[in-house]
Write a protein that binds this DNA or RNA. Structure first.
Lengths: 191, 191
DNA sequence: ACCTGAACACCGTTCAAGT
DNA sequence: ACCTGAACACCGTTCAAGT
C-alpha cells in the first residue's frame, strides 16, 4: 500500500509507461527493455524497480485500454446474440493486435496464473462466456461451442492480423463464426 | 554446383542438421544457434558456413518432411472434396506444429520471396488452392473462399496448437471448415 | 525510498588466421 | 575448401553503492 510515491519515482514511472507504449507499438512486445529505459532517460535498474518483468510492463501499459474493452464488452449484452458475438470477437481481435506479440502473451496468459496478464485474460474469457451461453440459449450458436473456443478464436484472429493482414484475419474470423452458428448441417440448439 | 564435399564438411553438415532437429524440437525454432553448434561439436562459424541464417537451417531440417507432406497432399486428389480439404488442413497443421515457432515462419514466408521457406509455403498454398477450387466446383465450398483463406487457417491452427492444445486447435479448425462449406445461410456454389 | 550503472551470463554474426 | 574462435555489438537481469 504505498501511498505517496516520491515525485521522481512517479515521473520515472510515467515516462517508462509512455516510452514502453511507443516502443511496443513500433517493435512489438519483444522489444528491448534496455532500449525503453534509454528512451525514458532512466537506468535499466529503474525500469526493473517499477516493473519486475516484461509482462508486468505490458500489463501496465494496457491497463486503461483494458477497462474500455471490458466496458464495451458488457455493453453488448443488449444486442442480438449473433451481433454481440461478432462484435465482441472483433473488439478483442483489434485490442490484441495493438502490439505485435500481444496475442501470444494473452494466449499463454489464460493458463498461467503467475502471469500479470492472467486477470485480463480471465475477464475476456468471462465476457465471451456470457455472450456465448446467451447465444446458445437463443438457439443461435451450436450447443457444443465453449468459451475456450471463442477465446482461442480471438487470439488466433489477432495473430493472423500480425502475420497476414487485417482483411485476412477478418475473413478467417467471420468464417469461423459462421461455423459456430446453428445451421442445417449442425446439431440443433434446443435447450 | 559443389560436387564432392570434403568428408569433414559433410560430417559437420549432417551433425548440425541432426542437432538442430533435436534442439528445435525441444526449444522451438528460436533456439540458440550457438547452442546447436556446441551440441554438434562444431565452431559457430562452421554453422554459419553451412547455413547462412536461421531460416536456412530450419528449411534444411524440414526438407524430407516437406516432400512427404506434399506427396500426401497430392494423394488427396481422389478423395471427396470436403474430406480432402479437412485432411489437407489437418496434415499441414500437424506439420507446421513440428517445432514451436514454425507456424510464424511459414505465415511470414509466403509473402517474403527472400525467405528460404518461401518455396515450401508456395507449394503448400498451391496444393490447398487445387483442393479448394475442386471443392468449389463441386458445390461443397462457398465460391468466395480463397487459397489464402486456407493457408491462413492452417497457420492459425498450428499456432493454436503451440499456444493452447491440439484438441483446441482441432476444434477451431473444424468449426472454421464448417464455415467454409456451402449451407443454407451462405451463398450457393453454382458454377 | 529510490536511482544508478557496472557486472555477469548470454546471444547473433563476422572474419582474419589457420589447416 | 573448410574450420576455428576471438571480436564486436547487443541483450536480460541483478545488486552494491550512492543520494
Amino acid at each position: 500500500m504505498s501511498r505517496r510515491p516520491r515525485a521522481d519515482a512517479r515521473r520515472n514511472h510515467d515516462r517508462l509507461l509512455a516510452e514502453a507504449d511507443a516502443v511496443f507499438r513500433e517493435q512489438g512486445t519483444g522489444a528491448s527493455l534496455e532500449g525503453i529505459a534509454r528512451r525514458a532517460d532512466v537506468a535499466v535498474g529503474t525500469l526493473y524497480g517499477h516493473f519486475p518483468n516484461r509482462r508486468a510492463l505490458v500489463g501496465a501499459v494496457l491497463r486503461e485500454r483494458n477497462e474500455a474493452l471490458f466496458d464495451a464488452g458488457e455493453a453488448l449484452a443488449g444486442k442480438a446474440p449473433e451481433e454481440a458475438l461478432r462484435q465482441w470477437v472483433d473488439l478483442v481481435v483489434s485490442h490484441a493486435a495493438t502490439y505485435r506479440g500481444l496475442a501470444e502473451l494473452l494466449a499463454d496468459g489464460i493458463d498461467d496464473e503467475a502471469s500479470e496478464l492472467h486477470a485480463s485474460c480471465t475477464r475476456m474469457a468471462d465476457i465471451g462466456e456470457q455472450i456465448v451461453s446467451r447465444a446458445i440459449e437463443a438457439g443461435t450458436v451450436r450447443p457444443d461451442v465453449t468459451a475456450a473456443d471463442v477465446f482461442t478464436l480471438m487470439n488466433a484472429g489477432a495473430w493472423t492480423r500480425e502475420h497476414a493482414s487485417a482483411e485476412q484475419a477478418a475473413r478467417l474470423v467471420s468464417y469461423t463464426i459462421d461455423g459456430l452458428l446453428v445451421s442445417d448441417r449442425s446439431p440443433q440448439g434446443a435447450v
